[in-house]
Simulated assay, not measured.
Amino acid sequence: MFRISILSAVAAFLFCNASLAQVNQRTQFNQGLAMFNELVMQHELGEAIDFIQIDKLLEEEELTELNRSLRVAIPDDFVNNQSVRSEVLKNGFRQELLAFWTEENDYYFVYILFHSRKDGFSVIHIEHSTEIQDLMAFF
């Protein structure tokens, strides 16, 4: 009887920690995506990509060029953003299609493929375009 109680307590502890880790990882993902969105809303695409691709550091020239190309494509300020499509794949993979738009109905889209690991999220692939059909092909 005592052994069953100990096993039950250990199982409850492990499930509680696993659940807590999953909640923390989900919170980390949501916070990271919110910061990414905020940077893109400010036309700081280079900084946004640099922020979520922690394993790849962009050179200053790359950051500047990404920001410049976004400002050329969409010169007006963004007024809102939303997730267009989000898909949880197998084995910790997830893909997101994000939309950003202006009052003049100019749209900018960002596709991100993530992989969730024990140590956090890894960004595997990013694409961005003013044409949604270019990015919907990933789904």
Rank of each mutant, 00 (worst) to 15 (best):
M1Y: 09
F2K: 15
F2E: 08
S5P: 03
S5K: 12
S8V: 09
A9G: 14
F13V: 13
L14S: 13
L14D: 06
S19G: 15
Q22G: 04
Q22A: 04
V23T: 09
N24M: 10
Q25S: 15
R26H: 07
Q28V: 03
N30Y: 13
L33T: 05
L33C: 02
F36V: 13
F36R: 01
V40S: 04
Q42W: 14
Q42P: 11
G46E: 04
E47K: 06
I49F: 15
F51G: 01
I52H: 03
E59D: 10
E61V: 12
E62I: 07
E62M: 10
L63P: 01
T64N: 02
N67K: 04
N67Y: 05
S69E: 10
L70R: 04
I74V: 15
P75T: 12
D76H: 15
F78K: 01
F78V: 00
N81V: 10
N81I: 03
S83W: 04
V88M: 11
F93D: 00
L98F: 10
T102G: 03
E104C: 01
Y108C: 01
Y111T: 01
Y111K: 00
H115T: 10
H115G: 03
S116H: 03
G120W: 11
S122C: 04
V123C: 14
H125T: 13
I126R: 01
E127N: 12
E131V: 15
E131D: 08
I132S: 07
A137R: 06
A137E: 05
F139A: 09
